[in-house]
């Protein structure tokens, strides 16, 4: 899939490119609004990651005109300005999602995957791991067709680990996913451990839950 990264911070654009290319995305860069505008006009991108704080272009204008010329692309707004009304304006102008800087690259990838699933109406919404069936649509987990009651947070952690299986998710990444919107400066990522402990306990009632692997000092991983 093709991605255009519109970002005047070259270093940041570079980091996003490195990350997404590992995930088999083809990345193109545009450091100014003018170049971005031309590239969007000429090419067909699956994703346009758009920084609103461009020096030469009003980001929302670029979004508006690009949306018109490129109806099939998905737009994700990235901004550090954090103006409260920008988020609403951006979504109203047809952006598919909005991420406030700084964001976790994994979170960006998750949002992109979610958009792809939504767009292509991917039917595969259930995952099977060692006898456990995880239904993403219903947000439920079953073992031999018996539902295991999980809290919202426990399900969020489980599904995030499943969507990024075979990858170590750090506590910071999981915390950002779970509490990213909550503003709290005395930040402690160890609360994740409490949820993982409870999650394992609930799953272990039915079968071994050691497929949720602890990576010491770093985070968690689901192998399959």
């Amino acid at each position: 899939m093709n991605v255009l990264i519109v970002e005047d911070q070259k270093d940041l654009a570079g980091e996003i490119k490195i990350f997404l290319e590992k995930e088999n995305y083809l990345c193109d860069l545009a450091f100014t609004g003018k170049i971005a505008s031309e590239k969007i006009f000429v090419n067909n991108y699956d994703f346009v990651l758009l920084d609103l704080g461009l020096p030469d272009y009003e980001g929302l204008d670029l979004l508006k005109e690009s949306r018109e010329s490129n109806k099939d692309s998905s737009f994700i707004i990235l901004t550090a300005r954090g103006d409260v009304d920008n988020k609403i304006k951006g979504l109203n102008l047809g952006a598919d999602d909005y991420l406030a800087k700084p964001f976790s690259l994994l979170e960006l990838l998750s949002r992109m995957n979610a958009i792809t699933r939504r767009k292509h109406g991917l039917k595969k919404n259930t995952f099977e791991i060692k006898g456990f069936i995880v239904d993403m649509q219903k947000r439920a987990v079953y073992f031999s067709s018996k539902e295991i009651p999980l809290t919202k947070k426990e399900f969020d952690i489980l599904s995030y680990l499943i969507l990024h299986k075979n990858r170590v998710l750090t506590r910071v990444q999981l915390t950002e996913h779970l509490w990213g919107d909550v503003l709290e400066e005395n930040y402690d990522s160890n609360y994740i451990d409490v949820h993982i402990k409870n999650l394992r306990k609930k799953l272990a009632v039915y079968s071994s839950s050691d497929w949720i692997e602890t990576v010491r000092g770093i985070g968690y991983r689901i192998n399959s």
């Binding site: 911070q9 940041l12 996003i16 990350f19 704080g53 700084p102 976790s104 690259l105």
Partner: peptide, 24 residues
Amino acid sequence: TSNISHELLTPISLLQSRLENIMS
């Protein structure tokens, strides 16, 4: 506030992305 936000959060964003790439 908008400018401060941009000036401070952009480098943090860069660092966070870089660290994430190093980790992976």
